[in-house]
């Protein structure tokens, strides 16, 4: 049986998912639940409860054999289904093979230089990813993984062979802080960081700055201590928490001040990072 993965959406041109113009593929389903997640509807798979079917104003949703079916043509893109979903899921997910996704992506050439697969958590589908990346590479496209790092990279050499790099969201260094933020421990993240640095596969490291929820300075120092002199050439993005799309406890939380972001960037430079960006 062909490999498949639940695809939440494919964005033909993304400006923010790696270098140059890239197609971004978002997979559905995540193994953690970040309090600041700005697309929480990608966290879980649909359980077929049918709540969204009744409320869809365009009647684009129906239940067939207990499964929600989405009529893409009838859909008006209002996202009512997403806002009423009690399970942090979306009914607008298509189950696709790597070849189906590659067909779409290759059609965007020559306007893109590569593909970035994100989530949810795309590393929950490593074999699917490997096959997709092999197909993309055969067409001369670059391949990046955007991951939370909670699934091991080190035991998947065939995947790493066809992936140009990884955009890793480190979130927090201290395990308890990470657990409060995501509901899971971060030992695998830290081991992945060391592995990816050693194998020169870090495309970008990210820290989302959430006042009162994480300690970005501690995280910057932890990363610097782990990757050593590689910090100089590593892109570090310090991202301001923004409440857009966020559900739950942080839905109304404030963004960090510009001064705080500037102080963190200065801290990162002191720790040896030369490519620091505030977003």
């Amino acid at each position: 049986m062909a490999l498949t993965a639940p695809v939440n959406k494919i964005i033909p041109f993304s400006l923010v998912d790696g270098p140059g113009s890239r197609t971004s593929v978002f997979l559905q389903g995540c193994n953690i639940a970040c309090a600041y997640c700005h697309n929480p509807e990608t966290q879980r798979l649909c359980v077929g409860c049918g709540t969204c079917v009744e409320q869809c104003p365009a009647h684009a949703l129906s239940v067939v054999d207990g499964v929600i079916v989405w009529d893409e043509q009838a859909c008006v893109g209002c996202d009512t289904c997403i806002s009423v979903c009690p399970h942090r899921a979306s009914p607008k997910v298509r189950v696709l093979t790597p070849a189906q996704v590659a067909d779409v992506v290759v059609g965007y050439q020559p306007f893109i230089r590569g593909i970035t697969v994100s989530g949810g958590e795309c590393m929950l589908h490593p074999d699917w990813l490997r096959e997709l990346f092999s197909l993309c590479r055969a067409h001369g496209l670059g391949t990046l993984i955007d991951s939370n790092g909670t699934v091991p990279f080190w035991d998947k050499p065939e995947l790493m062979e066809v992936a140009d790099g990884v955009m890793l969201d480190v979130k927090a260094w201290d395990c308890a802080t990470f657990e409060r933020l995501t509901g899971a421990p971060n030992d695998t993240v830290l081991r992945n960081l060391a592995y990816l640095s050693d194998s020169d596969k870090i495309e970008e490291l990210r820290i989302v700055v959430v006042p009162g929820w994480n300690d970005p300075q501690d995280t910057i120092r932890g990363i610097a201590a782990t990757i050593g002199s590689a910090a100089r050439d590593t892109q570090l993005k310090l991202i301001k928490f923004r409440p857009f799309g966020v559900k739950g406890e942080l839905a109304r939380a404030a963004s960090p001040a510009d001064e705080e972001m500037a102080a963190l960037a200065a801290c990162a430079r002191r720790e040896g990072f030369e490519r620091v960006e505030i977003r």
Binding site: L15, V16, P19, S21, P110, F111, I112, R113
Partner: peptide
């Protein structure tokens, strides 16, 4: 935001 990623614009120009 394209100002932060002019490489993306360059890709578009090259592709076009």
């Amino acid at each position: 935001t394209a100002a932060h990623n002019v490489d993306a614009l360059l890709d578009v120009v090259k592709g076009a």
